[in-house]
């Protein structure tokens, strides 16, 4: 078991017949994920990589007991896809889709939270849990072959893979890696994700990967200082050289209203005793040192 997924996680892929949905369904199956159904309105009755396709999430839940969803549908329909998944009764929704209008995300995410449903994303790589061979997302399978006791929570995609790779290469195993998403509003933010994984008794250490924009890192530092998270942590923050007022690829990665720069995040972490790596490659060293204490 891990905090968000376990051996009983049964996945429905919304937008399974699209290029991305189909490609990543195959990768998820190869990894070991129990993908039990797919949904594309109008394509019910077909199959994708042997997975039966339905017109509604409700059918996928009723026939196969799907309890988690991964969403690949285009931005214009993605917020509705979240609402449909919530109403169909799934417990976890991972939204890969980028470019969803932020007001729609706001409504969908708030609705999901009010119904006790966890949303990861939007605009995220998803999550992967090597101990239970379950991936709801697009992370490369080959990096997540070593189960272990480190949780990685991140606002980035490729940087998560890079740092996970460095961790595995230096002898660590991964319990779970969660990319919370690069949008300004996400279902589970960096601080909340860290809080969740900290509650898992199997997790020994937490690696946090932040970036410019917002104040999730600062809030996380505060939680740590207050004792809400009592696991060894190490951090990295991308964007020390990011100029203010510019969006750095992610919609949420912007230094604005005089806040959200990397310096303030790094200082917030260091002030409460969370070491921050100067480069991604120093993260494993820092983690090792934290675990020895």
């Amino acid at each position: 078991m891990t905090v968000l997924v376990g051996p009983n996680t049964k996945v429905v892929v919304q937008g399974i017949t699209g290029r991305e949905g189909s490609f990543h369904t195959q990768r998820m199956l190869e990894y070991g994920t129990k993908v039990v159904a797919g949904v594309t309105p109008g394509k019910g009755g077909t199959t994708v990589h042997g997975v039966p396709v339905y017109d509604t999430v409700e059918e996928a839940v009723r026939r196969h007991g799907a309890n988690a969803s991964v969403i690949f549908v285009p931005a214009r329909f993605a917020a509705n896809a979240v609402l449909e998944a919530v109403d169909a009764g799934v417990e976890l929704v991972v939204v890969i889709t980028e470019h969803i209008p932020v007001h729609e995300t706001l409504r969908a995410v708030n609705y999901a939270r009010s119904r006790g449903v966890t949303v990861i994303g939007p605009n995220c790589p998803g999550l992967v849990a090597p101990p239970v061979r379950t991936k709801l997302g697009i992370m490369p399978n080959n990096i997540y072959q070593t189960p272990g006791k480190i949780a990685v929570v991140s606002r980035s995609g490729t940087l998560t893979y890079e740092i996970s790779y460095q961790l595995v290469r230096t002898g660590f195993g991964i319990n779970i890696a969660i990319g919370v998403g690069g949008d300004p509003v996400v279902g589970l933010d960096l601080a909340e994700a860290a809080l969740r994984v900290a509650q898992d008794p199997d997790v020994e250490g937490i690696v946090v990967i932040g970036e410019v924009g917002g104040d999730a890192e600062e809030r996380l530092a505060k939680m740590y200082a207050e004792g809400a998270i009592n696991k060894p942590m190490a951090a990295y923050v991308a964007g020390r050289t990011a100029p203010p007022g510019k969006r750095m690829g992610h919609a949420g990665a912007i230094v604005m209203l005089g806040s959200g720069d990397a310096k303030s995040k790094i200082e917030a972490f260091r002030a409460v005793g969370i070491p921050v790596a100067d480069t991604p490659f120093e993260v494993p060293q820092l983690m090792a040192r934290q675990l020895k204490r």
């Binding site: 980035s156 995609g157 490729t158 940087l159 991308a238 050289t241 969006r247 690829g249 480069t279 991604p280």
Partner: peptide, 23 residues
């Protein structure tokens, strides 16, 4: 995004590209 140095950066993914600049 334009910056003012002389080393051009290409990366894949926002976080990794920013981290490449920082590196």
């Amino acid at each position: 995004v334009e910056l003012d140095g002389d080393i051009g950066i290409i990366g894949n993914g926002a976080g990794l590209t920013m981290s490449t600049m920082d590196l």
